[in-house]
Write a protein that binds this DNA or RNA. Sequence first.
DNA 1: CATCTGACGACCG
DNA 2: GCGGTCGCCAGAT
Length: 109
Amino acid sequence: MGWEVIFGFVKRVPKGRVITYGQLARATKLRGGARAAGYAMAACPKGRGIPWHRVVGAGGRILLSEPRASLQRRLLESEGVEFRGSRIEMEGREWFPPKPRKRRPRAQR
DNA sequence: CATCTGACGACCG
DNA sequence: GCGGTCGCCAGAT
């Protein structure tokens, strides 16, 4: 196996939320760090329902090259993700996997 | 087996 | 804010 763990993880990112390559790498304890996460996404198999567009660069930057960058932006905006300039408004949009915790102590903001 | 090829990010000047 | 350095993986040819 190679990147399967990454793809499976990306599939869990909810609509309207995003995750960065760096987080992806840390969350899956990927050796090779963020770069490896990037390599993985580059090899992301299409047609498996993987929300690839929810994976963004650190600081909310779109790292793809055209025309994919525009497509990603469009897809994200259609999910309600806001942009400020060329950056994604990351406030509260960054997603992290649910911890094996008991439950949400209270409503989030 | 040798090379090439990509969706990264932290750090520094 | 911009550009360069460095560490880094897996699949294809």
